[in-house]
């Protein structure tokens, strides 16, 4: 079986190994977590089996935060060194982070509906995640609408920094605004979790961590290849133009 992915040609050995292994590990952990979530973790007292979605919902939330933190660091690194790789890392991390944030936003309602009787509620944690999603959707739109590649990288870097600085402020403001997330007590760092639950929760975190790393291992080299492609296109266009161009004198 050959995994889909970037061309084999000039990948360094460790990258090829990572691109193969990370998805496998993530997949394996996902299966293990699924098993643990349904068969190993204790049944939650008040919410019953529906609560099991927590093992897919909460760790995604933690991981997306990590992804955006990576973008924050990569953005600073780009502005200081101007090396393309940091721009690609920042961009890829936002895409991975957006995927994870979307998972949080999609699994939330499936949990909320049976428990609270409504798909969406304006309570703190969900709103915070939604705002986070909007900020980084803005990042991706900003990139899409900026034509010049250098400008795109610089603007995105500033956005990556400013957006992340906003994250803790949004967190606190939304929590003061809305009172508490009824399930916060159980979710905060596994303090209120039973041992079996804690293990599966940890499994969920590891799953998403490897998922994130797998996505990055595939996306970043893809970004570099896109860059190479654009460079080749530009130089071949320049050569064609050189052959056609005639001197013009006013």
């Amino acid at each position: 079986m050959s995994l889909p992915g970037p061309a084999r040609a000039d990948r360094p050995g460790w990258l090829a190994a990572a691109q193969m292994l990370l998805p496998l590990i993530a997949g394996g952990m996902a299966i293990a977590t699924l098993y643990g979530a349904f068969f190993y973790a204790a049944r939650e007292k008040t919410m019953g089996d529906v609560q099991r979605i927590f093992y897919f919902h909460a760790p995604a939330g933690i991981m997306c935060f990590l992804a955006f933190f990576v973008t924050f660091l990569a953005s600073i690194a780009y502005l200081r060194t101007r090396r393309r790789i940091w721009d690609i890392v920042g961009h890829s991390s936002v895409e991975a982070g957006m995927l994870l944030t979307s998972i949080v936003l999609l699994t939330g309602p499936f949990w909320a509906r049976p428990v609270w009787g409504t798909w969406w509620t304006w309570e703190a944690r969900l709103v915070w995640t939604l705002v986070l999603w909007m900020i980084y959707a803005g990042y991706l739109l900003l990139r899409r609408y900026t034509d010049d590649p250098d400008q795109q990288a610089r603007f995105a870097a500033v956005m990556g920094i400013v957006g992340f600085l906003d994250v803790p402020i949004v967190y606190y403001s939304v929590h003061w605004w809305r009172g508490h997330h009824p399930l916060v007590l159980k979710v905060s760092g596994g303090g209120g979790l039973e041992p079996t639950m804690r293990i599966v929760f940890l499994g969920g975190i590891i799953t998403y961590l490897f998922l994130y790393m797998a996505l990055m291992a595939l996306r970043v080299p893809l970004g570099r290849m896109e860059d190479d492609l654009r460079r080749l296109e530009a130089s071949s266009r320049a050569r064609a133009r050189g052959r056609r161009d005639m001197a013009r004198v006013t």
């Binding site: 050189g242 052959r243 161009d245 005639m246 001197a247 004198v249």
Partner: peptide, 13 residues
Amino acid sequence: LERLYHDVVDGAA
């Protein structure tokens, strides 16, 4: 100058 200009620009192309 004109001659030189043509030479240079055609030569470069």
